[in-house]
Design a protein around this nucleic acid. Structure first.
Lengths: 196, 196
DNA sequence: TGCAAAGTTGCAGTGTGTGCAGGTTTCTTC
DNA sequence: GAAGAAACCTGCACACACTGCAACTTTGCA
């Protein structure tokens, strides 16, 4: 079925990460607007043309990390035991994933990127891209068809949006609590509902 | 305080709507990729350069309608009586606003736009732009500071995301129920919470 | 009526993004 | 391990996107 990846696949992945890394690093150094795609491509050791074989824009390359985060989260959620309640699986998946993807070392980087308006649409799209997958996974977990019932799609959209604002809040307010604490507050909120 | 708008203001608004209308109409006719900014500007009777004084990209002009929808929603929500429970105010605001902004006549248009990947980031950004305002309004309503408590920001993000997916679901599945029914299901979900 | 502020426009110039064609590398098969 | 197929990389050409600037026109206000 899935055979071990050959040289070609490995090279492609290497190029892709080289491009994403170069884009992120250069943009952090000089600001997103101070970097051209050509410079990114050069830094990664490929031609301009090749850059566009991997990403359709500079922004997409810069937020490649966010895409990876979202994918990792959906995967982690999908791998939680099936008998675990949905919100508990959610909590575990987030606690497993977040520390690795948003730690205090990268804090300044994340703040800088979040302050760049150009990147916002791309960041939103990065998370949105995993909504359908998440809806599918959660639909399967609770035994419901995402096309017929609103629960899976609402769950997916709500969770993605909530994680986004919680992380944003944590970054912007310089909240001293561990991110995991905020995640717990968030999940309590999703559990309780929004009535007041 | 707010004096009646002069000629200058009215002209600006007219130009802006002319550009947005032209962008939307041309893109529906020929597809988003089949239209250049120059054509949009020409259609609206202004120069290319002037287009960019109003919008920073073709996509932004096309989704100007979505921005207006989101603004109208936040305004309607803010104008609900203060003693109304949050979710009831939400329901009323949506029922007031949605029929005018997403009716069956424009249905095909909306479907077409939603199928254009280029527009997705811009659409997401359009709704996201109102999240902060919504969080402020709801924070005031329930007497909570959005910077200190997660409720307002989570509410805002969740509601925006939920409305988005509910409308999407309605459009994509060709659901025969009135949109208002789905809105009620949505609000029940927000009321009950996501535990299963 | 006349000045100041704001808006429009053309122009020049840089950067983005895509189709195409030719060359190189990897994979497959025998 | 040699040959052909498939995938990939690259340069080139080109259309389009977007911005700063400076001149010009219109609107607001005294």
């Amino acid at each position: 079925m899935t055979r071990p990846p050959g040289l070609r696949e490995r090279k492609k992945l290497a190029t892709r990460t080289a491009l994403a890394d170069a884009a992120l690093r250069l943009c952090l150094e000089r600001g997103v607007d101070g970097v051209t795609v050509e410079q990114v491509a050069h830094e990664a050791g490929v031609s301009l043309r090749t850059f566009f074989n991997y990403f359709s824009s500079k922004e997409e390359a810069v937020v490649a990390g966010d895409v990876a985060t979202a994918e990792a989260f959906v995967r982690a959620f999908g791998e939680r035991p099936a008998d675990e309640p949905v919100l508990e699986a959610l909590r575990r998946a987030l606690v497993d994933i977040l520390p690795e993807h948003v730690d205090r070392a990268k804090l300044e980087q994340l703040r800088l990127l979040r302050r760049t308006p150009t990147l916002l649409p791309a960041q939103l799209a990065a998370f949105h891209a995993q909504e359908r997958a998440l809806a599918g996974v959660v639909g399967e977990r609770v035994g419901v068809d995402p096309a017929a019932d609103l629960y899976p799609v609402m769950f997916a959209a709500t969770v993605m949006a909530s994680v986004r604002v919680v992380v944003t809040q944590w970054l912007d307010t310089g909240d001293q609590r561990p991110l995991a604490d905020l995640v717990n507050v968030m999940i309590d909120q999703l559990d309780t509902g929004f009535r007041r």
